[in-house]
Amino acid sequence: MKKIGFTTTIPVEFFLAGGNIPVDLNNIFVCNNNPGNLIDEAQDDGLPRNCCSWIKGLYSVAVKEKAVDEIISVTNGDCSNTHALTELYTANGIKVHPFAYPYEEKDPYSALKQQMIFLGNALNVTLDMVYDYSKITDKVRDKLKIVDRLTVDGYVTGFENHLYLVSSTDFNSDLEKFSKDVDVLIEKAEKRHIEEKYVRIGCIGVPTINPSMYDFIESKNCKIVFNEVQRQFSIPSTNPDYIMRYIEYTYPYGVMDRIKDIKEQIKLRKIDGIIHYVQSFCYRQIQDILIKKHLGVPVLTIEGDTPGDIDGRTKIRIDSFIEMLEMKKKKGLL
């Protein structure tokens, strides 16, 4: 049984079916007792200050903390910084297996299937073993859909939604315990009294490095009813074809696919405004242009760099944005 890390969401059933322990390097970085220290360590080794903090955290958890035995590095479908990160892993003696989501392939399905076969070979599992295991994980994914519905209905907080959906990338390295934790959350949430909030907010973009933003946002007269990428990380597609689920998964593909998904959810969840979180020095900041152009609801873009509380300037922006939405909603302008 090996602990195998990965740099962004990939089909987790490949690890579980082979009896290995999946470790989302992002999750263990941000949940570390001192994530800022991990960034400092990476910078001490020469990673540039103006490089995304996630990359630096991913470097340190593997190279410095030696948290995993091997790594699956997603070289297509995430950022190109991962290529350099992969080279650093290899240079530090860590065994790395690449995994590439299809990009502009004529036949993306076949390309993805081929990548899954490679992944299976690396982890010593067959696709059939993976398909079988997905029947077990599907039960947990069904529970996550309940968590998401309870978020829309106001019983689960934006932060809880973020935490549980984002943790489903590796099921916190313990599927059974994670499943029970989700049961506890659902049971607790269903008994809650709902506080009526006026404005309905959707959060989009990569998961924030500053999760305290959730409580700050919901301390205003608003409810977070959507976490775009976290929901995608939980693989919401129920397509009977396992490979198709990862074709319908939007995160590793073009922004227009993401925009289509976000627009559908805006309608379904009756969202008044979107908060777009972007990570400093991330290429996805550029995609903000298209997101603002196409969503059709007010969008506030906020930027985070290092772990910790959100800064005063970001709080001012969020505050003013919610205030603006409240005013517009009262006047029937949304």
Binding site: F216, G312, K315, I316, D319, S320
Partner: peptide, 18 residues
Amino acid sequence: YGRNLMSFANAEIISEIK
């Protein structure tokens, strides 16, 4: 600047944008 950092018992606080 400090709307969320400050809270004065004898003043109403409004956002900078407003």
